[in-house]
Every structure is written in structure tokens, then in C-alpha cells.
Write a protein that binds this DNA or RNA. Sequence first.
RNA 1: ACACUGACUCUUUCC
Length: 235
Amino acid sequence: MQLSQKFYDAFKLCGSPPIARKLHAQLILSGLDASLFLLNNLLHVYSNCGMVDDAFRVFREANHANIFTWNTMLHAFFDSGRMREAENLFDEMPLIVRDSVSWTTMISGYCQNGLPGHSIKTFMSMLRDSNHDIQNCDPFSYTCTMKACGCLASTRLALQLHAHVIKLHLGAQTCIQNSLVDMYIKCGAITLAETIFLNIESPSLFCWNSMIYGYSQLYGPYEALHVFTRMPERD
RNA sequence: ACACUGACUCUUUCC
């Protein structure tokens, strides 16, 4: 077995700061810290262990950062609530490097840090600034944006996003349907959620849970329970 | 090198 493979496996298992540091030291000693692939994995390990500063040190010392390096670091900052640093990093990213993952990380990062309004603004920037249409058709960008819309509880915006995903022919994708249902529920627009839900041949667990939540909020526990009993598979 | 980055619901007993 290759040594690099061993590092890769060890990174996958590593969940504690002392082990992370030890692996880092051994990576340097072995000379394999020249491998960007392994450095990217180390970056992810540091991020998972809540060691953002160590992650950033690895990032700065990496000679030729690729898209994985940038995006992993971006996510690391948001994960630890360091939004300003995430923003700075995003601004520093060369435009050629930025991809739909970078944008989606920004959108979801703001939302997870309690700033759904920023998510929407970022989404608008994405549509405006990235000329590549392919980059604007990533379903993950829309699931994250719709989540932010739900947090804002804006039915008006929800309808616009809905029209947008239909126009891009993303409406048949399961994750998009999940997000549409949940977005409308969070906006309190249960009729619109039902319209989507009833048109899905086999709704996912995500959808069912969103509907149950919606009914419980609007009609109380008994109606919610009624929906629950109609689920084909309960867990 | 077919390995590395972002999602969508609920839950996750401190009181």
C-alpha cells in the first residue's frame, strides 16, 4: 500500500486536534506535503476539528492552491463563524478559479450564520457576475438559496425563485422539489407547498417531513399526525 | 489517479 494512501485513510478517520497535528508533522517528515491532494485533505481535517487557524496556515503555505483548496478553506471559515475572513478569501479568489461550489458555499455559509439576506444578495451577484450559464444552473445553488428564502419567509421571493428553477428546467429534480416544498412551508404558504407536493409521484422523506412540520405549525399536532399516518414509510 | 470542496426536512437530554 502506498504511503499516500495510508495518509488518505488516516485523514478520513481523524477527528481530534492532537491526532491532526501529529498527522501533519508526519506528512512533512515524509515529504508528502508536496502533494496538493493530501494537503487539501489535511485542510479538511483541520476544519472538521475546529482548527481554522491551522487550516489557514496550511492554505497559505500551499504552493499552487487549486479549486478544492480554495473552496475547502472558504467552508472552514464559515463553519467557524468567521465570515469576514470568508468574504476576504472569496474576494481574493481569481475569477477564473471561482466555480459554482464557491458561490454555493457563500450562499449557504451566510444562511448558516444567520444572514439569509446576504445569501440572497450573493445569489443575485452570482447571476449577474458569472457570465457562464452552466455555472448558474447548479441545483445546489438553488437549494441553498431557497433555504435562505424560507428563513426570510418571503412568499414573493419564493414565487420568483420557483419561476426561475422552472425556467432552468430544474423542476423535476428531487432536491429542487424538496426545497420548493420546504421553502413554501417556511413562508407559511401551505397551499403552494401542497400544489408542489401533490404533483410529486413519490415524495421523499424530506418532503414528508416538511409537510408534517407545516401542518403542525398551521393546523396543530392532530392534522400533522394525520399527514404522518399517510406516509408510506415512517421512521 | 477512477482519490480531495458546497447542498435540501426532522432529530441530536445544560437548565
